[in-house]
Amino acid sequence: MAFLHVQKTTNRLKGLKNNRSLIPYLLLAPGLIWLSIFFIFPILQLGATSTKTPAGEIGFFEQTYRFQNYIDAFLASKEQFYRSFLYATLATILALAIAYPLAYAIAFKSGRYKNILLVMVIAPFFTSFLLRTIAWKQILGEEGPVVSALRAVSIIGDTTSITATPFAVVTGLTYNFLPFMTLPLYASLERIDPRTMEAAGDLYANGLTTFRKVTLPLSMPGVVAGTLLTFIPAAGDYINAAILGDPKSKMLGNVIDAYYFRIVDYPTAAALSFMLMAAILILVTFYIRRAGTEELV
């Protein structure tokens, strides 16, 4: 795609004929260099670290190609593995349920407020992810407005909390990644030609049928992109569990953090990072195969 586009552009630029064949590579170079320095090299390092074993002193490891590290690491943390994917799945489903109507309303029903609404979706990004999560901890805290109000009307008891629960972690994940779901959904909904929906109506489809047969299938690229953009970071997240969770709702990100900084067991941390990456890749590949990606990009 990019290559063809570049070719077309260069055809129009008459003065650059001689170097035409080089230009695509030159344009790709910054990205490739960036990736090799900041992605490929660290990944190789991480891979090398993951098979090392302790060398007698804390922080010292030697390369022994011990692939058993992966099995040990998985067995020690399978609970958090399972939890990470469970929470990420729940958050993705919740985010989809919230974001779809939102994106639909912005795309089709907002009229002149469209831009304001879009800015409101993006606005949380002006504040740091960490601060927003800490803010939720205050809002939902023991003496915060929500718990006080719910207790006053006896919806929850005096000993029931909202924070320091799995519920708070999933809610935090949903909130934090909601814009990543909303924007791709909006982009693909907005692209739908309204005449297709009118045509469905002309052919005697009711609103629901139109949505099911026309709007939803045409918005699938947005659904696929949004779920991926939500699920992948949510599965690897550790801030929400660290701030909003309790010891029984920690995720894999917290495990990796603990191995790196507290236990100083770099090989286990590296092995877990790799397994998380692999697990996400496998799931995503499977998902994309099922959902199709023709219109994804």
Binding site: S77, D246, S249, K250, A258, I263, V264
Partner: peptide, 19 residues
């Protein structure tokens, strides 16, 4: 000792739900 440091810290992190 080095061995204690690692095994104690691991046990503590496990108790804390971190691993």
């Amino acid at each position: 000792t080095v061995a204690e440091e690692t095994s104690f810290q691991t046990a503590f992190q496990e108790a804390s739900g971190n691993i």
